[in-house]
Amino acid sequence: MDISGERHLDIRHDIFKKRIDSHGNVIEVRQDGIGAPKIERPLQRHGGRLEHNETYCGSCYGAEMTDDECCNSCEEVREAYRKRGWGLTNPELIDQCTREGFVQKVQEEAGEGCNIHGSLEVNKVAGNIHFAPGKSFHQPNAQLLDLLALQTESYNISHKINKLSFGDSIPGIVNPLDGVQWVQPVPNGVYQYFLKVVPTIYTNIRGYTIQSNQFSVTEHFKSSEEDHFRSLPGVFFYYDLSPIKVTFTEHHTPFLHFLTHICAIVGGNSSFFSRFPY
Rank of each mutant, 00 (worst) to 15 (best):
I20E: 04
I20W: 04
S22I: 11
G24L: 13
G24R: 11
G24K: 09
V26P: 02
I27S: 13
E28S: 14
V29Y: 10
D32I: 10
G33A: 11
I34P: 06
G35K: 07
P37M: 07
P37W: 08
P37G: 09
K38L: 14
K38P: 02
I39C: 15
I39N: 14
E40V: 12
E40T: 15
R41A: 15
R41V: 09
P42A: 15
Q44C: 14
Q44T: 15
Q44Y: 08
R45N: 11
H46E: 13
H46P: 03
L50C: 10
N53Q: 15
Y56R: 09
C57M: 08
C57S: 10
G58N: 05
G58Y: 03
G58R: 04
G58E: 03
S59G: 08
Y61E: 01
Y61K: 02
G62F: 03
A63G: 02
A63V: 03
E64P: 02
M65R: 15
T66N: 08
T66Y: 09
D67S: 13
E69P: 04
E69F: 05
E69V: 04
E69G: 06
N72F: 04
S73A: 06
C74H: 00
C74G: 02
E75C: 01
E75R: 05
E75M: 03
E76D: 12
V77P: 00
V77D: 00
R78S: 00
R78E: 00
E79I: 02
K83W: 07
R84I: 01
G85T: 07
G85S: 06
T89K: 05
P91W: 01
P91A: 06
E92A: 13
I94A: 01
D95Q: 15
Q96D: 05
C97R: 00
T98V: 13
G101R: 08
V103L: 15
V103Y: 11
Q107D: 06
Q107M: 09
E109V: 04
E109Y: 11
A110I: 10
G111W: 05
G111L: 06
H117D: 09
V122N: 03
N123V: 15
G127W: 02
G127S: 10
I129G: 07
I129W: 12
F131R: 06
A132L: 15
G134Q: 07
K135W: 03
K135E: 04
F137E: 02
